[in-house]
Computed example of a mutant assay.
Amino acid sequence: MQPNASTKSVHDSTKQITLLIIEDNNDIWMIVSLMLKRQLPNVSFHRVVNAQQALDYLDERITNSQAIPNLILQNLYLPLLKDGLDLLQEIRAKLTAYSAQQIPILVMSSSDNPDDIRRAYQAGASSFYRKPADMNNWNSYFDRLRQFWLESVILPVT
């Protein structure tokens, strides 16, 4: 029996997904990249470590008519900025200026400060994920992220 759209595996739908990860901490990046490779083997991802690299990456993709990421994972606190909220607002403004689709931006932070959470949503975050404090919880963290953002919701086509 030939597989059709309704019988394809869940991971088939993630083949064309590209993630932009904005994370400056190398220790966290090692965990994130390991989890991405383990949980999302068919998803491609690109890492940048600061706001300027993120904006340059998006500029290059947009101006060269290359596919922009389907999803952005962004650390809340970044170097060279007071926080990642400025970057979040700049990404949203850039996408609007180029008439590009609105990419979901998932803010990842170790903070559980209600003000950080409120301000992230006000700046344009699609969701706010608290980073696990315990190493043993990273697998379930990315499992939930995968289930919701890559298996439940429909992302924009790039």
Score class of each variant (00 low, 15 high):
V48H: 01
L20D: 07
V32D: 02
F142V: 05
L95N: 08
D56I: 09
D27N: 07
R144S: 05
P69E: 07
D86C: 12
S140E: 07
G84Q: 01
L36A: 09
L34N: 07
S110I: 04
V49P: 02
A125L: 08
P132L: 05
S111G: 02
A67F: 11
A97I: 12
E60M: 15
T96C: 12
Q122Y: 04
A100Y: 06
D59C: 15
N42T: 12
L55S: 13
N139H: 06
K94F: 06
V43R: 11
A67T: 13
L87M: 09
L34T: 03
N137K: 05
S140D: 07
D115I: 13
R47I: 13
L71I: 12
K94N: 14
S111P: 06
L71F: 02
V48M: 01
Q16P: 08
N42S: 12
E90M: 13
D83G: 07
Y121K: 05
I105Y: 00
Q101I: 13
L76F: 00
R92P: 10
W29V: 09
Q39K: 10
L95V: 12
W138T: 04
S127Y: 01
D143N: 10
L19T: 07
Q39I: 08
T18G: 09
Q89R: 14
N50R: 14
K82T: 13
D56L: 15
L88N: 07
G84Y: 00
I117E: 08
